[in-house]
Design a protein around this nucleic acid. Sequence first.
DNA 1: CGGAATGTTGATTATATTCAACTGTTGTGG
DNA 2: CCACAACAGTTGAATATAATCAACATTCCG
Lengths: 270, 270
Amino acid sequence: MRAPLPRLPTPHPSRIPGLIAHLGIFSRLSEPQVAELATDARLSHLGRGTPVLHRGEPLPGLIGIGYGLLKLAARGVNSEERVLRLLGAGESFGAASILLGRPCPVDVVTLSDTLLVTVPTTRVLKLVDLDPKFAHRMMLALAERNMGLLSELATRALQRGIQRVACYLDSLARPLDGSERCMATLPVAKAVIASRLGMKKETLSRLLHELAQNGLIVVRGPEVEILDRARLAEIAYRDPCSPDRQAAGPLVQGASTRRPPSDPKLQTLS
Amino acid sequence: MRAPLPRLPTPHPSRIPGLIAHLGIFSRLSEPQVAELATDARLSHLGRGTPVLHRGEPLPGLIGIGYGLLKLAARGVNSEERVLRLLGAGESFGAASILLGRPCPVDVVTLSDTLLVTVPTTRVLKLVDLDPKFAHRMMLALAERNMGLLSELATRALQRGIQRVACYLDSLARPLDGSERCMATLPVAKAVIASRLGMKKETLSRLLHELAQNGLIVVRGPEVEILDRARLAEIAYRDPCSPDRQAAGPLVQGASTRRPPSDPKLQTLS
DNA sequence: CGGAATGTTGATTATATTCAACTGTTGTGG
DNA sequence: CCACAACAGTTGAATATAATCAACATTCCG
């Protein structure tokens, strides 16, 4: 936390409809529908590290991101926190809570300069009631999050730290001009990513080091060069109990050859 | 797994509408609506330990439980599995998957003699399209599961094993005539409960023993007598890093006094 | 430059898993 | 009814995995 909490100048409100229309959850709405959502909507331009909501507070509405980054985190009784989700531009949160009239279940904090749009609860509920197509899309969005949360739980339960790291890097990989190599840029501080992956920053540091020592990646600050994506994916999806293929160092031990039936990849910023 | 997979005699199909109407998700439907859902629906009476679906298989429809118990579990590449959810009579699963047209994301197995009703996907989708009220309830049900999954993730991330055990016992506690004491009956085998709580059966055994040694509970097979519910809840919700209140043995170490802001209790059979 | 935030590294400790042996329970068939 | 096999649960020792604590290095910014 930081002391002064700078509330930055807010952009021109006339941009609200455009921002709303670019949120995934409000895409495909008609222009008048967007306009109606926009009548009440508020913009907030927040500096990095600003708390947006605390757990237990009432949600003013559905909150979308124009630009910037948010983290949603659960907090223990003292101060330990676990990042549950990272959100970027075009994404939103709070749908489930406002539909049920529940308070915010997580702490929400900006991770960079961020522009938020808040569409008041009543407008969203009205839209759900009046537009069956919107209600349907909302239902599908909730179902999608459901599947995502489920796979998150499964990932946590079944994968070791190093597998989650490998998985995450694989999900960030962008092809580089050179055929084999890829790049991955860590979108936020390593401590945040560590928390998102269910570990401490020290552990993440060690695991990245271990991957580097084995020639899979090269770490330069937030830029990670992926030298051997195939082998990285193999680690990510390997059965940690299967026998060694080649004694290749201290890198876990197993090396099964098949991918798992489903796709437990961590999503970028999800 | 067991070899013969007895497919037990199925009850009279005339009971299908009654069973459907008793499922939470289909409550409040009109009689003709239930009748229409029932036209295609199939009953299956399965013996204990019968696999219902494997991960990746297509879902025939929404599956509800007339009586019995199901476990939904994620499976690693080899054979290690983690129980994600336990379902009892009146509950159902598969809603999110069939809405999105996705295959079953988990392994489903009966834990006792169980009667299942399968309502075909097309009937459910049709109902969603034709009855806005049902669509709305479905949306709320998905939102509710969302919150549940989120709190599950938070629980896993922030609570120690012994806290999850204490929490679970607290959630099972039924008042006993004697004022202070309560009873909790473990609904399924300890190994299954352990997996549901994110640990191995050996660990659960040791943690129960530890609670017993400290005079909080008495374990007699699946029956757990809760001697001091207040202290149990204190363990469940305590900050594991706060200083000791009284050096009371090997039971974690902390003893903060307040409950957490929200309610991270594990639900019975959820 | 100085200072805060961020990241790394080593030593130690906490928590839970694994493996193995053993006990108790339950249901079944002789 | 008993013997037996399959299952369920317990316990101990060794091990794996990650957290914690502390010191230090690096980067980012004003």
